[in-house]
Amino acid sequence: MSDYNFAYLDEQTKRMIRRAILKGLAIPGYQVPFASREMPMPYGWGTGGVQVSAATLTPEDTLKVIDQGADDTTNAVSIRKFFERTAGVATTEETEKASIIQTRHRIPEADLREDQILVYQVPIPEPLRFLEPRETETRKMHALEEYGLMHVKLYEDISQHGAIATSYAYPVKVEGRYVMDPSPIPKFDNPKMEMAAIQLFGAGREQRIYAVPPYTKVVSLDFEDYPFEATKAEHPCDLCAAEDSYLDEVILDDQGGRMFVCSDTDYCRTRREAGHVGRLGTETPLQTGPEAA
């Protein structure tokens, strides 16, 4: 792979992407169109995130890639390998040690710092898309701050289900202006978006980049009498006993046996190494688990 430029993309392309990122940071939550390139992984598999990471990486960076919160899911492995080969940067599974974290569907449990960048992979950047399919119309709605329709959707949820029936990709309003899709993270993660790190969002197929600068106000849309609730399974982690982390539910057998484990594998391991033990955990810290054949 030595024939490719550092991090695959040529310098011109990276500059173009950096301009889009800077514009995105200057207008928090605004979707900046950019000339997305074809990447060697399929659209919908993180091409936007990969391009943003490629334009952000420097040779001194340490990269962490997660999918569903885990470092060892296939797509995370594949993207991490891609950057190991094309950029030769150091990689890590430890949130603490990473300078850039590319993620799909989760925000790490540990608080991120000012010297870290979180890059999200975004499938559909337009929060209004499923209310209005036309791009020309949704751009107008953003420009004119016409967000009434978004609340109509939430109203309908409550009138039909007694609660807002959106559990992931829960829309937020950024710095009191743009309504933004936080990518398909569970709504449990929404409150974490007011953070110290820079958050960058890349949608390759849809050719959009957007950003949330550090300490920006990010408010999940709701009603005064039906306030936003960040929810998770009402269990502690069965391995590390964490009460505050988002949990995956694992079906153990066909008798209804199941366990709940941290979706953030690094968080869970760190806790177990610090001596926390859950219902089904053991004293000694374990490897991250056998790999599937």
Partner: peptide, 9 residues
């Protein structure tokens, strides 16, 4: 691709 985090939600 895995979507189990969203599905869990």
């Amino acid at each position: 691709l895995p979507h189990y985090v969203d599905f869990q939600s």
